[in-house]
Design a binder for these strands. Structure first.
Lengths: 230, 230
DNA sequence: GCGGAACGTTCTGTATACAACACACAGCAC
DNA sequence: GTGCTGTGTGTTGTATACAGAACGTTCCGC
């Protein structure tokens, strides 16, 4: 219902827009970054006390951070045992993309037909920055997500949007692989053009098709690269 | 939570199957039950200390329980403000069912083709108990979920299964409405027959169609009843 | 009477303390 | 040597203590 600007926070805003970042969220982001970048090995045990010491905080926010990360699929938690960095496997990627293909194209279709001219301008801007960031994989991926996130914000089905965003949070786990795909940005930009045209035309069906194609290609690329790497 | 089937990684699994129920989980279940049964009014504020006192525990497990319930969509949490019982609206139901229709039928299709004879026997048993429970809405709904859950357990795509289970956790919020639908069980059983036939025949495509029909009808019924009640 | 600021209450967020449990290893019996 | 048991260490789960923020109230100025 209430649209949020460029912040990535989900929803919610009773009294104050709550930009006051909680420690637990900060720790979660910090640890997520390390996991995504591969600085925490898959399968490695994450002791609350150890994480707390390294982050320079007490166990309380760390505990909450680990639960958050569990929800985002970055760690596994076993009761009375502790947290592990979640394993990364090619089967998981395929599963995740199968799910994304079910949800995301529909989300895009619904969002595109709800866009205003101002929204399209905003997307144009992100798109431009993507084009000029094709040499930095990390930045490109970040802008890519921002494009989709901005678009999804206009999906009238909030439940669907939240599910899609959940899949994105899980997908972020494989960025390290994307970053290794040669010429990923250039090819991605090309395919992205089809989606962007649909956005400008307000053509929901075309956007749905375009997103499905993008996902199919991304899965194909990542599987090939994964096999090449591992 | 995770199925943990054929992981080839060494991955030491939780030493004990962890039936040891944590206090936080107990509180979460207790509070969820109260919310579902309408004993906690939608929109009502849930103060950590108040819940803790009523549950007879300290704030720590309550805090975790509220986060769990937030993930399941039963409460909303705003930073530095607290938790509210999530509102229940007809728009949310429609959104949720739109999502379920995208995910669940595919999940059922994949599961049905993976069933063994033993699995089918187990489902037959649940089915029989459903037939004899048509007079108790609560029990019927519970068995209904058990049927689908048992089925979904065999979906080879764990990520999809988890997403589907997430939508179920959210859907449980509307049981109080289902329970008011006249003759719900009888009609439901009838439609359920189509699905069950597909299960026995191992016909994935038929199961997918059947589940889609079931969801469409359920949405229709719940919308009608909601308008009648509210 | 009305607006606004200072105050006080209440709650969350974080830190710390304590208890229960799990695992590893050493020592003993056989 | 093998298997069991008791102890020790480390970690999680829960309770409690403390600090700061948000909200309501009251009191003052006008």
């Amino acid at each position: 219902m209430t649209k949020q600007a460029p912040t990535l926070v989900l929803d919610e805003e009773p009294p104050h827009p709550a930009e006051h970042k909680l420690l637990s969220r900060t720790v979660a982001d910090w640890l997520a970054e390390r996991i995504i970048m591969g600085e925490e090995a898959p399968g490695a045990r994450l002791t609350e006390l150890d994480v707390a010491r390294r982050a320079g905080v007490s166990r309380s926010p760390v505990r909450e951070a680990l639960r958050i990360l569990e929800g985002e699929g970055l760690v596994d938690i076993a009761p009375r045992y502790g947290a592990h960095v979640a394993h990364i496997g090619i089967a998981d990627v395929e599963e995740l993309y199968e799910c994304r293909m079910l949800l995301e194209p529909v989300c895009m279709r619904l969002a595109v037909v709800a866009l205003t001219d101002g929204d399209i301008d905003e997307l144009e801007d992100v798109r431009r920055r993507m084009e000029s960031a094709s040499t930095s994989p990390r930045l490109f991926l970040s802008l890519n997500v921002q494009y989709f996130r901005t678009l999804a914000l206009h999906c009238p089905n909030d439940t669907l949007r939240e599910l899609v965003e959940l899949t994105w949070k899980k997908a972020v786990r494989y960025w390290s692989i994307f970053a290794r795909i040669p010429h990923y940005a250039e090819v991605s930009i090309m395919q992205h053009t089809t989606l962007h045209d649909a956005v400008r035309a307000g053509d929901g069906a075309a956007a749905e098709r375009a997103d499905r194609l993008i996902l199919e290609r991304a899965l194909h690329e990542i599987v090939a690269t994964f096999e090449h790497v591992a």
